[in-house]
Computed example of a mutant assay.
Amino acid sequence: MGRTVRVKSFELVAKDINDVDVKLLHALSIGVGWPHRPKDWDFLRRAGHGIVAVDGIGRVFGSAMWFPYGHEFATIGLVITSPRTQAQGTGRWLMEQVFERCGDRNLTLNSTHAAYHLYLSLGFTKEATVYQWQGEAVSPPPPVPALTAELSSLSTANIGEIAALDERAFGANRQKLLALLSEGAAISVLRRGGEAVGFSMKREFGRGHVIGPIVASNDCDAIHLTAVHLRDLAGQFVRVDTREQTGPFADFLQQSRLGINDTVSTMSKGKRFLNRKENEPWVYGLAGHALS
């Protein structure tokens, strides 16, 4: 696959995402209305790999990132093309670059409405919808069901305690990502009989805070793992990305004065990504659209 592409009268070259100024990445995401701050881009570059499409004088016209979890699976995200090049095939070219670098891995991504048909044409299949709940958290928070487990904070040093639980819910080992996420996060863990059965993280992102990942085996546990962070964020902007549109967990988010701002489509290429099982751990809240 060629490492360059011609767009109208100029040529774009694939360049490592770590070799460009973060201010250019920030400008790219602002140009399409995405909330990523420079520090969010810096975090994502630490967590994964990426390329940018640059012209001969260093202007950035597109980006794409991938986040490998072992040798068999990766998530894709931050696929952005500037408005000037969106109709010129740059998005397809960026994805072909990603395919080349990911090899035979099974892939998943969360597609915007604008990119959906491109991903279909590239062999991705839709599996689910992600609902972006966001808004200012209400004070006081809404009532929660009776707690039937022990809820406490977890230190970064003990992040390994929840790695196996997260792997069961997500389907791949994300211990390295969890460690990176935990550096600036508040972490809560739910235990029954001394065993971790759920966890959640709260961290700064975009316009305010994101609560995610949230891993639990049922809506009640997911509510408690979310409420513990909402209590600290009363009156502040909060975002929760979830595949739950209805049910007690979705009702709780609505009662917390969060609303569905947008949706994206979870899509996979290769092995099916989502595999929910009753009474088994499930990702109620995404770590992020790119990280899933």
Rank of each mutant, 00 (worst) to 15 (best):
I260C: 06
G70V: 02
G160V: 11
E127W: 01
T226D: 00
V5F: 06
L12T: 01
A250K: 11
R239D: 02
T75M: 02
L154R: 02
T129M: 01
V228I: 11
R3K: 11
E244Q: 14
A53T: 12
F237H: 15
G123H: 09
H117T: 08
G285C: 03
G135I: 01
G235M: 07
A185M: 02
K271A: 15
M95P: 08
L258F: 13
G58P: 00
A234Q: 15
P141R: 13
R239K: 13
V144C: 11
A186K: 07
I159P: 04
P248W: 04
P213D: 03
P140M: 05
V32D: 14
V52K: 04
L147G: 00
K23A: 14
R174H: 10
S155Q: 10
A115W: 09
G31H: 07
E278W: 14
A234T: 15
G33C: 09
W133Q: 10
T263R: 13
Q88I: 03
G58W: 09
T108N: 13
A137T: 03
L230C: 06
G171S: 09
L118T: 09
A163N: 01
H117S: 07
E183R: 07
D40S: 10
E127I: 04
D251K: 04
I57S: 11
G135D: 04
E161L: 08
G235C: 03
V20I: 08
R192C: 10
W93A: 09
I80S: 00
D42I: 12
N279T: 03
H113M: 15
A114M: 13
M1V: 11
L274E: 06
L178V: 04
V60G: 07
P248F: 07
S155K: 12
I214R: 00
W133D: 11
F43S: 04
A114T: 14
Y69F: 10
G62Q: 09
L291T: 00
E280F: 12
R168W: 03
A74W: 06
M201K: 07
V228T: 13
Q255W: 08
R3D: 15
F249V: 00
A172T: 13
L120T: 05
Y69G: 06
F43P: 02
H229W: 01
W282H: 15
A234V: 13
E204D: 07
S121L: 05
E100C: 13
E278Y: 15
G193H: 01
E280D: 14
T4N: 01
S139L: 08
M201V: 02
V54E: 06
F273M: 12
K8R: 13
N279K: 15
S9L: 08
M267K: 10
H71E: 15
G270I: 07
L181G: 01
A128R: 10
L233M: 09
H36C: 02
S111I: 02
S200K: 03
L118V: 09
R272D: 13
A179S: 14
G89P: 08
S29H: 14
T108Q: 10
M95D: 11
E195R: 15
R257P: 04
A157D: 15
R257L: 12
T81L: 05
A227Q: 12
A169N: 05
I57K: 14
K126T: 05
A114K: 14
I223N: 02
E150F: 04
F252V: 03
H26Y: 14
I162P: 05
V98R: 09
L151S: 00
